[in-house]
Simulated scan of single mutants.
Amino acid sequence: MTDLSGNIRKKFEQVQCLSDRLRQLGWASFTKPVRDRENLPRHVHPDTFEICCIASGNVEWWVEGQIYNAKAGDLFITLPGESHGGLNDIMNPCELYWAQIQLQADTGIGGLKPDELKTLKLELIDAQCRVFTGSAKIEQAFAFLISEHEKPDRFARAKVETTLAQLLIEVARACQAGHANQISPTIQRACDMINAAFNQPIRMEEIARELGLNLSAFYKQFAEQLHEKPTEYLTRLRIAHAKELLRQTDQTITQIAHASGYSSSQYFATIFKRSTGLSPRIYRKNVKTEG
């Protein structure tokens, strides 16, 4: 389904799913921020894990009152019974897959035996992973599940069960790795430099020079390891800081812009709305209303 803004969504509800384990399966591509009052308001899945795979862009959700940001290459998981939703019901520009999966271990899934499924389920719960780095295999498994649901044949149910088992195994492996996925000392140093000075003028050329890299090599290594450009990383830090100030203080928009590294409140407002779909003033009004 494509809306007037060019955003695309494919969603299969439980009665359409080709596995009894699936409560919902979907893929969406949002070219512009959208307020999604149908899917993002506060809700709970009593017996269901929800696994989201971010293919591009970034998303911002809350779970049990805590806010999380997931970027391209990340997985985001909510556990059964957790209250969750999209911050201010806004979906940022992004591409993502999701599956709501019931993991009761009375029977297996694909090649996973009941005891193996039980162990996997407990590992996901005990690890308390929320946002962590995924893999190409996970995104490929999601894409395959969508394609099988779009054009099912007489083998589709068996193929979906097998792929669902493979997906869960890869998610469990990624969860175990968690945030320990390898980031080179060079790129970690770049992140540390940006983190320390995000609210000041930053020139990526100077950071690259400090690291002993030319600019194109710096951008390439950063994007390969963190799935976003260093400028995108910087913007995320600045907008996250601005959101915190909008939620927790009564500073003016101009003060918050300067405290977040922007010399112009007008430019700050433009970047903020591009990232969140809301102006800083409307964002502040909404979070104070919800609080």
Rank of each mutant, 00 (worst) to 15 (best):
L234A: 09
L226D: 00
E161H: 07
E161F: 03
I54T: 06
T48P: 09
C129E: 05
G134N: 02
R236P: 00
E244A: 05
G212K: 06
Q16S: 15
Q251F: 15
V15M: 11
L167E: 04
Y262F: 15
F218V: 05
C53A: 03
V160P: 13
Q14P: 04
Q200S: 10
D3A: 12
N92E: 06
E38A: 12
I109K: 03
E210R: 02
G6T: 09
L4E: 14
Q128Y: 10
I138Q: 01
L103Y: 02
I146Q: 02
H227M: 08
I54G: 02
R173W: 12
Y233Q: 08
R173Q: 13
G212N: 05
E139Q: 11
Q66E: 15
A196K: 09
D126I: 14
M91Y: 10
E38R: 14
V59R: 08
A223H: 13
A99G: 04
G277A: 01
I51M: 00
W98Q: 00
Q176E: 03
L245Q: 10
L278K: 03
L213K: 02
L278Y: 10
M204V: 04
I194F: 12
E38V: 13
K10T: 07
Q16R: 15
K71W: 11
L246G: 07
T78A: 05
H258P: 11
V59Y: 02
I51K: 00
G73H: 03
E205L: 08
L145A: 01
Q255M: 13
E139T: 08
W98K: 00
P80L: 06
D115G: 09
N199Q: 08
Q266E: 12
S216P: 04
C191K: 14
D74A: 11
S216N: 10
L120P: 06
R35V: 10
A208Y: 03
G73S: 01
K159H: 15
L245Y: 04
F268N: 09
Q251I: 11
T162P: 00
T119M: 14
H258Q: 15
L234Y: 09
K10P: 06
I187V: 05
C17T: 04
L211Y: 03
Q24M: 06
T31I: 15
